[in-house]
Design a protein around this nucleic acid. Structure first.
Length: 569
RNA sequence: GGCGAGGUAGCUCAGCUGGUUAGAGCGCACGACUCAUAAUCGUGAGGUCGAGAGUUCAAGUCUCUCCCUCGCCA
């Protein structure tokens, strides 16, 4: 039994995520976690909300809440949305939790002890009325080059030139609109990434199980040269800066930059898990305490690759402590909305909570897995969604379950029928099944989710092909025993169809397995000899048709949803 | 403007280090079947692999130029 640590990129606290965020990290991480669990491995799937930073502070102010209240509320909302999609994380933690605060301070102090952190003096715009320093992009004013009146402190959106906040004429705070600004000196801690460049490059060189996309992004950053980065900010909301465990002098009103503490949140959330469940978090993260046999797999969108291959490793490796680093890494491209960006303001796209109001999580899970943005960006369209759901889920899988269970109910009293002998058709099914299972398993192992879904669909279709050969409805008229072996085999095969579906559509798979009376302990990936798997159901066991598994998406639905959420034209 | 990804059947996409008649699913056409959610199964028609040039015995697969799309950055 292998031990597999899985993390998915942390969703930012600022509101429910849209389907693209789900498809690009949390969902595939979950599918992979579920697959490895049904394979019998010891899996720890960790996720958390990324809660610090200026956007959270501002959103809280807009909502008229304290940042803590705001984050509490948003965390619960995101947790519920995740539950609605059956995301099976072992822990859904928070970067604002105490364990993460402790760890973040620990890393900073260790890095400083290694000579990798130093204080530097900076000049920054302070808003007297807001009583705070302003991040560059929260200072606006008139561009000195083109006269554009709403240029940002880091760049002018009109002429595109790079700016310093002090370049702006008539500067004002984007937060309050106040013009009562001044430039003040402020000290910040800098992480000396330039000193770690060689070490990180060696580490990247040694990482064999990364896809080419990840490696090329990492090398691109390294080739351009790492820069020392400021890891503190003049904010109230965040991890307090300490020295020897006490507030650091001159940093009483500063916190660590969200960039620095967020990835540490993977570890922090694991500590939260351990505290809640009595688990041993160090056995997952410390190679000196048992984590040397752990395989660590990260899931993320392509925008996050640099942080996971360069920035976070700088923190981890720089500590020179025996922390577990990533082994396998899976990066996703974007899910687009009809080829363009998801956009709230332009009513283009669906958010996680809205999606669940339309249809159960399994529908979305199937679509977003079968159409995962793996090789390149993938487009969501209602028409494609409708096509995949109706064909794969309703017609191929759902209808199979319904047709055979109802036939069995009317002809064999709803029990697994006795009689008939294993023959040519059953041999054929067993052979095909063996090949397909092998392929599906390999695709899951390789984290090739589109291909895995495609193979699962083929496994489902194989059931219908078998029925066409076995044609129990015809044989029943002249030879009920010959019909019985067909029905019995079809029922047994249905357990295989459901078990391979467990990672992707866990609820529908469970409904099918419930109908067949399959014990929890048997709800695992189908392995072993085909014939024994196809003859496992006890003769005489009652099997009842469930409610319709998947209802079809009608053209009228597509029209209505396109109207509400955007679509073609 | 710079960088990155990509342009393969009507649609969505596979095609690793170049090598027999370029593949899948959907859609479409025809046929079969009737147990089933007008479902299923089978057969078939569809592509000068964005354009042009080059390297090679051999290129969708390498090189160069150009066109187009998307994203990121400055």
């Amino acid at each position: 039994m292998a031990r597999i640590l899985i993390t998915s990129a942390l969703p930012y606290i600022n509101g429910v995520k849209h389907l693209g965020n789900l498809a690009g990290s949390m969902l595939p991480a979950d599918v992979y976690a579920r697959f490895q669990r049904v394979m019998g491995h010891d899996v720890l799937y960790v996720c958390a909300t990324d809660e610090h930073g200026t956007p959270a502070e501002l959103a809280a102010a807009t909502a008229g809440q304290s940042v803590r209240e705001y984050c509490d509320e948003q965390h619960d909302i995101q947790k519920r949305a995740g539950d609605g999609f059956s995301l099976s994380y072992d822990v859904f933690g928070r970067t604002s939790s105490q364990p993460n605060i402790t760890l973040t301070q620990h890393f900073a102090e260790v890095l400083e002890a290694r000579g990798l952190i130093e204080e530097r003096l900076e000049h920054q715009v302070f808003s007297i009325d807001d009583d705070r320093f302003l991040p560059d992009r929260y200072v606006e004013g008139t561009c000195p080059h083109c006269g554009f009146e709403r240029a940002r402190g880091d760049q002018c959106d009109n002429c595109g030139r790079l700016l310093e906040p002090t370049d702006l004429k008539e500067p004002y705070s984007k937060i309050s609109g106040s013009k009562n600004l001044e430039v003040r000196e402020t000290k910040h801690l800098h992480l000396l990434q330039t000193k770690m460049e060689a070490r990180i490059r060696d580490w990247v060189d040694a990482s064999t199980e990364w896809p080419s996309l990840a490696k090329s992004i990492a090398y691109k950053w390294l080739d351009e040269g790492l820069r020392d980065r400021s890891i503190t900010r003049d904010l109230k909301w965040g991890v307090p800066v300490t020295k020897d465990g006490a507030p650091r002098e001159g940093f009483e009103n500063k916190v660590f930059y969200v960039w620095f503490d967020a990835p540490i949140g993977y570890i922090g959330a694991t500590v939260e898990w351990a505290e809640a469940n009595g688990g041993d978090w160090e056995s997952w993260w410390r190679t000196d305490k048992g984590a040397d046999d752990v395989t660590y797999v990260q899931f993320m969108g392509k925008d996050n690759v640099a942080f996971h291959t360069v920035s976070f490793p700088a923190t981890i490796l720089g500590s020179e402590e025996p922390w577990k680093t990533v082994d396998k890494l899976k990066a996703f491209n974007w899910l687009t909305w009809y080829g363009g960006k998801f956009s709230t303001s332009e009513k283009r796209g669906v958010f996680m909570d809205q999606a669940l109001d339309l249809l159960p999580g399994d529908y979305w899970r199937w679509y977003l897995t079968a159409n995962a943005p793996e090789g390149s960006d993938a487009a969501f369209t209602w028409e494609h969604f409708q096509s995949l759901i109706n064909t794969d889920l309703a017609n191929v899988l759902g209808n199979y379950v319904n047709r055979i269970l109802r036939f069995n109910k009317s002809r064999f009293d709803g029990v697994v029928p006795e009689g008939g002998t294993w023959g040519e058709n059953e041999d054929w099914l067993a052979g095909e099944m063996t090949e397909r299972l092998k392929a599906a398993e390999a695709h899951f192992e390789a984290m090739e989710f589109r291909k895995a879904a495609s193979e699962i669909r083929a496994i489902w279709a194989l059931g219908n092909e078998y029925l066409t050969k076995a044609e129990p409805w015809t044989k029943f008229k002249t030879d009920p025993d010959a019909a019985a072996i067909g029905v019995r085999t079809a029922l047994n095969y249905m357990t295989v169809m459901a078990r391979v579906a467990l990672p992707v559509i866990p609820n529908a798979a469970a409904t099918i397995l419930d109908a067949l009376g399959i014990a929890d302990s048997d709800r695992v990936w189908p392995k072993g000899e085909a014939k024994s798997m196809l003859t496992a159901l006890p003769v005489g066991q009652s099997v009842e048709p469930p409610e319709v598994l998947f209802k079809k998406i009608e053209d009228t639905d597509v029209a209505e949803w396109s109207e509400r959420f955007g679509g073609a034209g």
